[in-house]
Simulated assay, not measured.
Amino acid sequence: MKLFAEMFTIAPGNKDHQVAFRCAVGVFVPLITLVLLDRLDLAIFASFGAFTGIYGRNEPHARRLTLQVRGGGLMLLVMFLAALTARVDALAGLSAAGTTWVLVVATTVIAWGCSLVVAWWRLRPSGSLFHIFAFAAIASIPNQPPLWQAMLVAVLTVAFSLMLGQSSRVARSRRTPWVNPRPEGLTPDEKRAAWHESAGYLVAAGVAGTLGTLAGEWLGIGHNYWAMVAAVVPLVGHTTRHRVSRGLQRIAGTALGLVLLAGILLLRPTPWQTVLVIAACQFGAEMFIARQYMLAQVFVTPLALTSTLLVAPVPPGLLLRDRIVETIIGAAVGIAVVLAPGARRRVRGRVRGRRGTAAPRRIS
């Protein structure tokens, strides 16, 4: 019952509208600029560059700048590696199946490595969900734009997000002291926890990517990296119950979000209207992401899928089907990874208990 109640509980707000507005503007301005320039092939780099704004939500300005520089810099590196991976795959002349499996392996490594970096830098949101999404989405684009243009758009978007993060300093009443104490290094226990959690990201992303790919081959669905993204969602949280709840909320929120998306697609929005939808969904996602994960997913789902349609149009029906199937696969894998250690401990306890209660051998 507690698990069920948690899915419908909303935590108190904490200036979420301010963060939501910055993030919405941070994605809207670059995307509408690309629409006006007729360069939607670069939109995905702007979309992920705008993720810089999600870091340092309510931190003082100096600390926020540090966190956003780190978060934006890591995202730029991920996007650069993704673009290179796509080009290497093209040069290697791999088959479609070979390219898919290379992408699964590469994305799994990104999931592991970025989770470690994020933990070492104490970034929030924690984990490597956004980096998995960015790397796999960009690396899977068949027709890559010129690399220098793609990275220029990404860098400019990151810079714009950094500027928005400091924009409230214009108002004297909102200005915070420019103090940025050096963060404490991780304790030995925190380092062990970071390595342990990174192993969870490695396993969850790898297994989900494998199952998502096999399901794609059997059922004719694509976007296997959506399973990898969903698989790492339950890995964030302080308790097992909270982590399992996040996995279930991911599935339920995605289903509701697909209903909202279906309604949006029925209106057949033009590119500039799609950008408005993306900005509105970004606002809604940031309003609730720290308070009610299932409700946030109602906005995240159309946000992610309309961004995909903006760059690479596909039949909407196939997109909706792929999203729910891959999300269920990934969330199930993530929940299994969360529950596995506890299940292993219980099995070991039972085995030890049986050994302890076994009748002693009689020596004659």
Results as ranks from 00 to 15, higher is better:
S126F: 13
A97W: 08
A83K: 04
V105I: 14
W178Q: 07
A150F: 03
F160C: 11
V153S: 04
T99Y: 08
N180H: 07
P145K: 05
Q166I: 07
L123Y: 07
P177E: 08
A96S: 12
L103C: 10
V88H: 11
G71A: 02
G93A: 12
V118K: 00
A97Q: 12
A86N: 15
A194F: 00
R172D: 09
A106H: 03
V109S: 02
T107L: 01
L129V: 15
P177T: 01
L156S: 13
Q166F: 09
W121M: 07
G73N: 07
L91E: 12
V170S: 10
V179F: 03
S167W: 11
T107D: 03
E184R: 08
L91K: 14
L81D: 08
L81P: 06
R172M: 11
W178K: 00
V78P: 04
P188L: 04
T85G: 08
W121P: 02
L116A: 06
A137Q: 11
A134N: 02
G72H: 01
W112N: 03
F160V: 03
F160P: 00
A171M: 14
R169A: 12
A106I: 05
A86H: 04
G185H: 05
V69K: 13
L123C: 04
W120F: 15
L152F: 14
T107E: 02
F133I: 06
S161M: 08
R122P: 06
G113S: 07
L152W: 11
Q68I: 03
V102E: 09
V104I: 12
L186E: 02
A139Q: 04
F160R: 05
A193Y: 10
G73P: 09
A150D: 06
L123R: 01
L84E: 14
A111R: 02
Q144P: 05
F80W: 14
S126N: 10
P146A: 03
A119R: 09
S95R: 07
L116R: 00
V153Y: 01
I132T: 13
L94Y: 10
S167E: 03
A136S: 15
A83V: 05
S140F: 12
A194C: 00
R192Y: 00
T157L: 07
W112A: 10
W120S: 05
L147K: 06
S173F: 04
L147A: 14
L91W: 13
A90C: 02
I110L: 11
F133H: 01
F80D: 08
F80S: 15
T108S: 09
L81E: 10
T100A: 14
M79L: 15
L76C: 08
T100L: 15
A136P: 12
R70P: 06
L156Q: 10
A111I: 02
M163L: 15
L77G: 13
L81R: 06
T157I: 01
P145N: 03
V117D: 00
S128V: 01
W112D: 01
R172F: 09
L81N: 06
A136H: 11
A136T: 12
T85I: 13
N143D: 15
G113A: 07
H131V: 09
L156H: 00
E190P: 01
V102N: 14
V158S: 00
Q68V: 06
R70W: 13
L81S: 11
T100H: 11
L156M: 15
P146Q: 02
V170K: 06
G98F: 07
G165T: 04
A134F: 04
L84D: 04
A136V: 12
L74H: 11
L74V: 08
P181I: 01
L162A: 09
M79Y: 10
V179K: 10
T107Q: 01
E184I: 01
